[in-house]
Design a binder for these strands. Structure first.
Lengths: 200, 200, 200, 200
DNA sequence: AATGAATGAGGTTTCATTCAT
DNA sequence: GATGAATGAAACCTCATTCAT
């Protein structure tokens, strides 16, 4: 194969990994097929990853970095909690709906039992929740969010709602963009007003 | 080995399956170890299940039946939506926290790609969500829940919140019973009042 | 199951064995399916046969006995060799074409490598050939058959021709009875006149 | 292990397959033992064959090709039918007697029930018979063979006679070369003169 | 760095046989 | 004698990983 910058090669493998693992699941995704999709030979994979599981780790790592970067900017923005949560959701759903294959992988494999690496490192859903949790805690500090809430529980609520939308999108073909706008807003709105009539 | 009633034997294998699969994950759970834990020889497993995957299916099937049974009684009770949701949650969390191993399995394996059976049948989380969704729709009908909500999204929210609690419990050793009471109530309360201060 | 004379039971198993082994081949014929076809439980098979291979042995044994009985009568008849060969063939083909399933089994399994029992005992085709060989040797003694022939080779020729007809019948559905008459006669005729024109 | 040309490796496995399958029978020939005899690991077998049965197929395929090649040359030779039959037999017996192990395999496994491939393709004995059949038909066309004969039946006769010799050789240790010369000639001679005295 | 043939541990599954009832 | 649940050895095959080229 033609020489490329190592970083490109690794990137190609990561992308192939996403395709194949999303399609087949981690266990049924063979290194051979990942190599084939990446346009590379199996041996080459092992120049960039020490084993198959590392590919999955790396996929999650990249996602975590993207989230972390966005999150850092978000918290630095000085916006009120409601707005940061809205933006975080919008961005999470936006990316998820734009790349359903990857989203499927992230949802399917997030609980995969891990041997070598600490669970914290892999667990993408935990990262998501802890981002939202921090936003909630900031809201509590600034007084916009009720102090008696359990941020952990509410963050589960928020991510749960968002994932609902993502999972639903796996089974439908409707245009994601509308859904996205609506869904983020709807989640925030629901959090704002509660779900019951009258008795607030 | 001494003869037993087939239903007992199958039950023993199911329970062993839960233990081993929860511990190792479906793929790493070997049929040999399931057999060993069940106190049975490998061959015996195949008198009750046509293959390893069927064990997992059966585990989910039994859980689904339990939920469905409880849900049927609940909807027949004529209680107001808020109360049915509270009870459903209490019961879901109660069982989950009492049997963390099984809960771990249910959460870990619910997204497993399925070959033979329709996704709907296996997908335990979908059943949960659709139960909650029905309770929400009943609430909308009876007027106690705001009609403009998307029941699908809110059910994701509720199950997401509950699973948050369950996942958290995997890492802590505190007494589940308090948590349980508190958590169900807290979820309902949050749904009632929304999360933001003042501006309702 | 209702009590039966042991001999009937053994006979039922033999017949079931023929059906299943002819259909599936010896290896793929499970003792379970033989038992099922025989209307008996697996355990019962082992009251009549010490193992699966014994069923096959017994099937061949019965066939060998039938042939031997017929052959004994034939040699005692004092008929000329040509006629005895004709009759032997007619009977062989007659039975084969009437019971193609069994014939298939006999042809398929005759070469099966045998562990426990001497080859002679199993080898049905050898018995057939040696019968024909004896008839040929009698013909040589009586002077009707040319003495310079190798009876072994010629018996292979005769059985080969007959099996040709049998194998062909597996793929056709035409009425066996005509075929039978014709084929035996044709074989004898060919043996008589040779296959080449003029130069005899 | 050192790299080799794929064709060599496949050939080594084919040869090992012949040895082990001839010795043990197809079913009792384990992939492990074939690999061991081939001086290769099990996995390597599966780089060249998709499953165990394919090894058997390939063994037959190679034999069929050899026969077909020889046969093609033979029919192109323009020799009279009697001579072509004599040569075909000589060659068939020559190879069979020189490689008894392989011959045993070919005779033992030719009736093996086949799942994937059409019977015609596998059935080596059918190929043999159809070659002889064509030679006979050519003889009928050229007028040297009696037109009222059934070529199918006579070809069974000829191959039956030849196989007689081959099977006999499994139990004897005498020098094949003499046998070979004698046997082919004897078969042709018998076909020529018939077996009975006087009455031609 | 890239290749891909070779490796071989290890997993699932089958099925003849046993034996308590 | 009959039953059929239980047994467990043994086979096929997969596929992550290695390493000579």
């Amino acid at each position: 194969m033609t020489r490329k910058k190592p970083s490109e090669r690794k990137e190609e493998i990561r992308e192939a990994g996403i395709k194949v693992i999303a399609e087949e699941g981690f266990h049924d995704a063979t290194t051979d097929s990942i190599a084939e999709v990446a346009g590379v030979s199996v041996g080459t994979i092992y120049n960039y990853f020490s084993n198959k599981e590392e590919i999955l780790h790396y996929i999650f790592e990249v996602e975590r970095e993207k989230i972390t970067d966005f999150f850092t900017g978000l918290t630095a923005s000085g916006l009120p909690a409601e707005e940061t949560i809205r933006r975080f959701l919008k961005r999470y759903l936006g990316r998820a709906l734009k790349n359903r294959r990857k989203s499927k992988l992230l949802l399917d494999e997030e609980h995969r039992p891990v041997k070598k690496v600490s669970m914290e490192i892999l667990d993408y859903s935990m990262l998501l929740k802890s981002c939202v949790k921090e936003l909630l805690e900031a809201g509590i500090s600034e007084g916009s969010i009720r102090g008696e809430l359990d941020p952990e529980l509410v963050s589960g609520m928020i991510i749960g709602a968002a994932d609902s939308v993502v999972v639903k999108s796996f089974f439908t073909d409707d245009c994601p963009d509308d859904v996205l706008e609506g869904a983020s807003e709807e989640i925030v709105e629901t959090l704002k007003r509660g779900i019951f009539n009258c008795e607030n």
